[in-house]
C-alpha cells in the first residue's frame, strides 16, 4: 500500500525533528527545521503529491524559516535557562 519514500528519509526526518527541538541555539534550531521541512517536501513528492511538496518547500522551508529568523533577530537567540 505505502511504498513511497524510503524508510531512510523518515528516519532522518525524525532525527532532524529531535535535533531541532533539543537545540538550545534557536538559530541553529531554525536551520535544522528548515532542513526538516525541505526533506518533508521530498517525502511528499515521493508520495505522489508534487503539488504539496512544492508548497511545503516554498512555505515550510522558505517562508516559515524566514519568519522564524526574523523573529529571532528581533528577540533572543538563545533559549534561557529554565531556572
Amino acid at each position: 500500500m505505502i511504498w513511497g519514500p524510503d524508510i531512510f528519509i523518515l528516519a532522518i526526518l525524525v532525527v532532524l525533528a529531535i535535533a531541532a527541538v533539543i537545540s538550545r541555539d534557536l538559530l541553529v534550531a531554525t536551520v535544522i527545521f528548515s532542513g526538516y521541512s525541505l526533506l518533508m517536501a521530498v517525502a511528499y513528492v515521493q508520495l505522489n503529491s508534487p503539488d504539496v511538496g512544492f508548497t511545503e518547500a516554498a512555505v515550510g522551508a522558505g517562508v516559515t524559516t524566514v519568519l522564524f529568523i526574523l523573529t529571532i533577530a528581533r528577540t533572543a537567540r538563545m533559549e534561557e535557562d529554565g531556572s
Binding site: 500500500m1 505505502i2 511504498w3 513511497g4 525533528a17 531541532a20 527541538v21 534550531a29 531554525t30 527545521f33 526538516y36 521541512s37 518533508m40 517525502a43 511528499y44 508520495l47 505522489n48 503529491s49 504539496v52 511545503e56 515550510g60 516559515t64 522564524f68
Partner: peptide, 21 residues
C-alpha cells in the same frame, strides 16, 4: 517550532493515506 513539526506530521499522514500503490 513544535507546532510546525506537529502540523507537518499530520500533513504527512494525509499524504500517506492518499497514496496508492
Amino acid at each position: 517550532m513544535g507546532l510546525n513539526i506537529m502540523d507537518t506530521s499530520i500533513f504527512l499522514f494525509y499524504i500517506s493515506m492518499g497514496d496508492v500503490e
